[in-house]
Amino acid sequence: MIGKAGVKRFLLSALIPFLVLVAWQLAVTNGLASRQMFPPPTSILGDFYDMLKSGELTHHLGISVLRAMVGFLIGGGLGLLFGLLNGLYRRTEELLDPTIQMLRTVPLLAITPLFILWFGFGELSKVLLIAMGAFFPLYVNSFLGVRNVDSKLFDVARVLEFSRFHQLTKVVMPAAMPNILLGMRLSLSTAWLCLVVAELMGADQGIGYLIQDARSYMRTGVVFVGIIIFAVVGKLTDSLVRVLESRLLQWRDSYKG
């Protein structure tokens, strides 16, 4: 699958990051930048290797991923459920949607202190914060997905006498799938963002804690490792959903650029 063209494309996209790293390394080793503030890439790599070997990194990463996943499953799951429900039934939409839209405008960062007040610094407040962040993108997009279903296909479902269940599984869900998957991607990235916020606010485990702890001891290299881990895992989960997208949506006949 990855042919000569693929390698060429990869090299091209890696060119700028590579040049930046080389310039950084040279600048620090030649004394142009402070070693304390900008540890050279080779020393960051060394920190990364040490943390990996001691098992410190995998331990904290595992904790963070678990928090993000639980939060995403609760928040995203509820978002999907309510999105489908309100998309399907005008009555529940009228009942629930205005309240949900109102809550959506509240900045998450602003309610973090409240969550800590109510639920303390424990896991509950973190998971709830992540769940709240993950709720809205999936809610909005699955709602939109249901409302975008071609009503002509509902006529077909009537003529073929689909049961209510089959209308949902054979018409609504597949038709709304592009939007649901988009919502999933946005929810996952929001969940990851909320995780960082939750762990920086106060935690004794997790990648966020690792960064906060390293900052207080001026271990700038470890701060960089934490940031890079956040970026890499975020990108990986996004790619995972995109793979899912290309599998589930191969039927689509749209412009591919």
């Binding site: 002509k152 296909l153 006529d155 003529v159 597949p174 949506l249």
Partner: peptide
């Protein structure tokens, strides 16, 4: 059985 002017197949199936 009803046949519409457009085929109205399910595009995902």
């Amino acid at each position: 059985g009803f046949i519409f002017q457009e085929h109205r197949l399910f595009p995902w199936a």
